[in-house]
């Protein structure tokens, strides 16, 4: 069941290469640079900008999970990936739904 990342196939026979890590590092730098660039140069309106920033951050999760954390590898069925995805869903649900719930009109009127 273990699925290997392309580069790390057949350990013991072939030397593992750094390619995967370099690709991962460069992608994370590029994604970060785009995020910083967009946010700090004020080229976009705030609403769409936040959406784009969130998508970029989401891509960074994928980069770290795939290139560095080897989420696709493992011993047996990918239970760890299942729980991680479930955890991600709940994390976003809690954060976003809390904002939704706590943004109730009476309260917002009181703070501002």
């Amino acid at each position: 069941m273990a699925v290997h990342g392309g580069v790390t196939r057949e350990p013991g026979h072939k030397k593992h290469k750094a390619t995967q890590y370099i690709v991962g590092y460069l992608s994370s730098l590029i994604l970060t640079a785009i995020a910083f660039g967009l946010a700090l140069t004020h080229t976009m309106r705030v609403g769409p900008l936040i959406v784009v920033l969130t998508i970029l951050a989401g891509l960074q999760i994928v980069v770290q999970l795939y290139f560095f954390m080897h989420i696709t590898e493992g011993d047996g069925p990918p239970f760890h990936a299942l729980f991680l995805i479930l955890g991600l869903i709940f994390t976003f649900a809690i954060a976003l739904m809390s904002v939704w719930i706590m943004g109730f009109p009476a309260f917002m009127a009181q703070v501002s």
Partner: peptide, 10 residues
């Protein structure tokens, strides 16, 4: 890590 993610989520 999944639980720690929830911790940060909160």
């Amino acid at each position: 890590l999944a639980t720690d993610m929830l911790l940060f989520g909160c």
